[in-house]
Design a protein around this nucleic acid. Structure first.
Lengths: 221, 221
DNA sequence: GACCAAATGGACTAACCGGTACAATTAACA
DNA sequence: TGTTAATTGTACCGGTTAGTCCATTTGGTC
């Protein structure tokens, strides 16, 4: 500190050598940033804190992501890409309509329960009115298509007579999402206000069954 | 600015006189704070901005609320007290069980739709893991009892045979809340990702009916 | 092995922002 | 009317924080 202050700019000692690793550095920054943003939100997150969690320096954050918001956007985009990959991994077309819907609901519920980081990030982005989703090209071309899966299974169910007609696929999706999302997003307030722990294994299991049952009852004749 | 800088501390000109109005000042600060917190979150909110929206000065914020978090907590508490008043205002005991549940769901849905500020504040508080709810005495003695209303109506419904037995009242509450809450909380992300506006009048109306229908189907034999 | 673009480090800064010091005024009440 | 606690205004401060400047090293290419 004392000597550094009188050394000419940028003339400080540095570790003898290092190896370049652009992808590793990028990855390291993104991981650190995810932790920090998910915990503290966009304005609550500290760039210095992210840098500290990283193997590299703050300088690199700005080198690769431009500014704090650019980094935030990158984290957000990656998380949406992951859930999209999850959705594409679902293979429900071969199942009976009821079974397909039950599985979709269960898997969606599980994905949210197992990825609270994703839930928190979506909450944070909604607080910001979806401003960063709106300005993201990667998100624009993402084509989140849980809806297509739903449309297909629901259509088959209506055709075979097990489901009642007249429901919009988007409404099915919203119901499934609401039940899965809320269970994670509002865990803290529910616990404080009702003393009920939605994260407890038995509560979670009961809630999962309830969600599946609720969706099926909503769809049946 | 120029002359002010060389004037002794606190010796600045002030408006000739003023009338004391503690309650008015408090009210004014709380209203300004609600706008700012709800829009920007706890860490995103600026005390100077709140002060600017107020009829009074920043000094008063610290005088009445101690610090930024104290003010945040006061806003949070007031919003929870309001929804509690709403819940107590519901008179469902005189209705048939199905009608009571339908009304409760509809009213809850409407309350959330009409009070996005409340929804946003709860989101923000959940991001903070409910830390401020936990340290609030006013919340601790609040006794949010939508649950009691549910237990009563559900019990009657089971007794009269229209509802199936074995459902926990808290689960009924969670289902209702999830459907009502999600519709407001995730509006922005749903719009960006699916191009669907949950806030549009017709979408809102359809969603409201869907929520009521879903809850009743969940409860019926 | 000379050259150069990409990648990296460390110190530094300007603005911002929560919170405070000091002084003054008001209003209740004896 | 004098006293005093409650209330209010203005200027200011110290720490924090996003972002930058300058220099240096790496590693591919010809």
């Amino acid at each position: 500190m004392s000597k550094a202050a009188i050394r000419p700019r940028g003339a400080g000692r540095r570790s003898a050598s290092w190896t370049q690793d652009p992808e590793g550095v990028r990855r390291s920054i993104l991981d650190a940033a995810r932790l920090e943003f998910v915990e503290n939100g966009l304005s609550g997150a500290r760039v210095d804190e992210i840098a500290a969690r990283t193997a590299t320096s703050k300088r690199m954050i700005y080198y690769y992501f431009g500014d704090k918001e650019g980094l935030y956007r990158a984290v957000l985009e990656e998380m949406y890409e992951r859930i999209r990959a999850f959705e594409r991994g679902l293979d429900l077309a071969s199942l009976e309509p009821e079974e397909a819907m039950a599985r979709l609901t269960g898997f969606t519920f599980d994905y949210h329960a197992e990825n609270p980081d994703f839930v928190r990030m979506v909450m944070i982005e909604n607080i910001h009115h979806g401003r960063h989703l709106a300005t993201s090209d990667r998100i624009a071309t993402l084509n989140l298509s849980g809806i297509d899966v739903i449309r297909e299974a629901y259509g088959r169910g209506v055709a075979s007579g097990v489901f009642r007609p007249g429901i919009e696929p988007i409404d099915i999706h919203l119901t499934i999402s609401a039940l899965a999302f809320y269970n994670v997003s509002n865990r803290a307030s529910i616990r404080q206000v009702f003393g009920h722990d939605m994260g407890a294994p038995e509560a979670l299991a009961r809630r999962r069954e309830s969600a599946i049952d609720t969706v099926l009852r909503m769809l049946r004749r």
